[in-house]
């Protein structure tokens, strides 16, 4: 359960380059919701995720994760509740370390890290079991450096790391945008499996309208820092791309659909 109340975020506040990135966004996310978020460039999609994760502290409003108001918490403290996958496959894993070392870091998310061994033997059985689900053969390569993996493999590993300890909310920020279409498809299928298997509350930002329609039970659209569309359940299932475009124009009355969204 996430409750976001009138969230406001400025960049370069008080300067000539001031941008109001989030303009009073309020949204309540129920447990188990899988929400896809669309909107044009600069709509505030990534800023919203960054504000939830704590990468940015909001300038106004509040964020409640589970039973906690985390509005003033720093990013590393919120990490206990938040699993993240970034657009850049290099950002979610540590290239200098092995697959098992990366997974061990993820297994201790939100825990105190002390002087026990980073990777323990009971970890390895769990890692093998979980890696097998990816179907990439990584379960036999625990000691291989992550720097040796392809972008798709690294993104699959990041997905696993983000969900190894089930988070209160999973934040996916265009996590397939840097991959080729076939790999992107595999990562999206993996996303669906992991999210369904663990009943994860998920927010997925995408630029691709068909992905936004196909995945999730709820769809929201942002424009210029405001929430302009929120569709869920049966209504979302029946939604087509043309409907979405129509709702789009109706809501905003201006050309905000980029080529990338139509072609994707």
């Amino acid at each position: 359960m996430i409750i976001i109340k009138s969230l406001i975020k400025y960049f370069n506040r008080g300067s000539i380059n001031e941008v109001l990135s989030l303009d009073g966004i309020s949204v309540t996310v129920a447990s188990g919701d899988f929400i896809t978020i669309i909107g044009s460039n600069g709509a505030g999609k990534s800023t919203l995720l960054n504000c939830i994760a704590g990468t940015h502290l909001a300038d106004g409003g509040s964020i409640q994760l589970g039973a906690q108001d985390v509005s003033a918490w720093p990013e590393h403290k919120r990490a206990r509740f938040v699993g993240r996958v970034f657009q850049d496959p290099l950002l979610g894993t540590c290239a200098a370390m092995t697959i098992e070392e990366n997974l061990a870091l993820a297994r201790r998310r939100g825990c105190r890290r002390g002087l026990r061994m980073g990777v323990r033997s009971d970890d390895r059985d769990l890692f093998r079991k979980e890696l097998k689900k990816l179907g990439l053969g990584l379960e036999n390569r625990l000691k291989v450096g992550v720097g040796m993996l392809s972008g798709g493999q690294r993104q699959a590993l990041t997905m696993l790391m983000a969900t190894l300890v089930p988070p209160e909310v999973l934040l996916l920020d265009e996590h397939t945008a840097a991959l080729d279409p076939k790999t992107a498809r595999q990562i999206l299928d993996l996303t669906e499996t992991l999210v369904a298997g663990r009943q994860l509350t998920t927010l997925m930002v995408t630029h691709n309208m068909s992905h936004a329609l196909r995945y999730g039970n709820r769809l929201i659209m942002l424009h210029q820092g405001r929430l302009i569309l929120d569709i869920e359940g049966e209504e979302k299932r029946r939604l087509t791309r043309d409907d979405l475009l129509a709702r789009f124009y109706q809501a905003e009355g201006e050309e905000i659909v980029t080529d990338r969204m139509l072609l994707g």
């Binding site: 994760a53 720093p74 990013e75 590393h76 403290k77 990490a79 206990r80 938040v82 993240r84 950002l91 979610g92 894993t93 540590c94 870091l105 993820a106 201790r108 998310r109 939100g110 825990c111 890290r113 790391m161």
Partner: peptide
């Protein structure tokens, strides 16, 4: 990455 794994 390590920040989002909960490390200060």
């Amino acid at each position: 990455m390590i920040t989002s794994q909960g490390v200060d």
